[in-house]
Design a protein around this nucleic acid. Structure first.
Lengths: 120, 120
DNA sequence: CATAGTGTTCTATTTAATTATAACACTAAT
DNA sequence: ATTAGTGTTATAATTAAATAGAACACTATG
């Protein structure tokens, strides 16, 4: 779901844009070879300057996630596929965490911390 | 685990500092009323200027997570407690995700997306 | 070949984040 | 009172992020 970035959120706009596009890919809404909206339209959607959009796309091009074609558009190059079993597991985990009254920020912090801590 | 911030990581230094301190609290390494290292020492640990540390602490003071005492130090004011059942659930989920070959970044993106999506 | 729609490049400006440096003020202990 | 250790405040300078605006270049189509 592409939407305006949150300004002054502590996350640079160009990073938020990268995250949103990556999420679209992960969720399967953007598939291999599919075209992104034109950069000027993306700038309108995200409510940022076109240069900020280009910065995001440049980074993703470096990661070989998207690819530009002069005069045509930006295309999805690589789709990371998520293991089929992963989604139900995550959904169930999120359901439980919400039951426990744990919020998204706390969850993200805990996961980052446990990810390092856990062996494997 | 307090350690140097990552520069040019796409996350402002002051935000990284907040995250690290919050994690310490969540993991129970910093408990209610316990004192943080002196601000100058924190600046050395995080490898940033003292002003950047102060910015982080100011934000956390506004959230009522820490509290300063002039001439003495900064203290933990509020510890968010994590439901006892949550940790094992998260550990198990992380173990599985790693088995599936899913990385931390992808996990965070999926969780952010599913958190919004799921009803509840 | 003209045009509309696209990406690309460039320069300048503004705003946010970070650093550097210094001085000041409170607290506890001597 | 003095001192060492602490937080506080202030100013200036630097760097990174974001904006603004314009011009350029490629592609497909009529």
């Amino acid at each position: 779901m592409l939407q305006p970035v949150e300004k002054h959120s502590g996350v640079p706009a160009y990073v938020q844009i990268i995250h949103m596009i990556k999420k679209e890919i992960l969720m399967g809404y953007l598939t291999e070879s599919s075209r992104l909206p034109p950069v000027r339209e993306l700038a309108t959607i995200f409510e940022v300057n076109i240069n900020t959009v280009l910065k995001s796309l440049d980074k993703m091009a470096q990661e070989e996630i998207v690819q530009s074609e002069q005069g045509i558009g930006y295309f999805i190059r690589k789709t990371q596929d998520v293991n089929d079993e992963a989604m139900p597991v995550l959904r169930e985990t999120i359901r439980r965490l919400k039951t426990y009254g744990i919020g998204l920020e706390m969850t993200k912090l805990l996961i980052e911390e446990l990810w390092r801590t856990e062996n494997g």
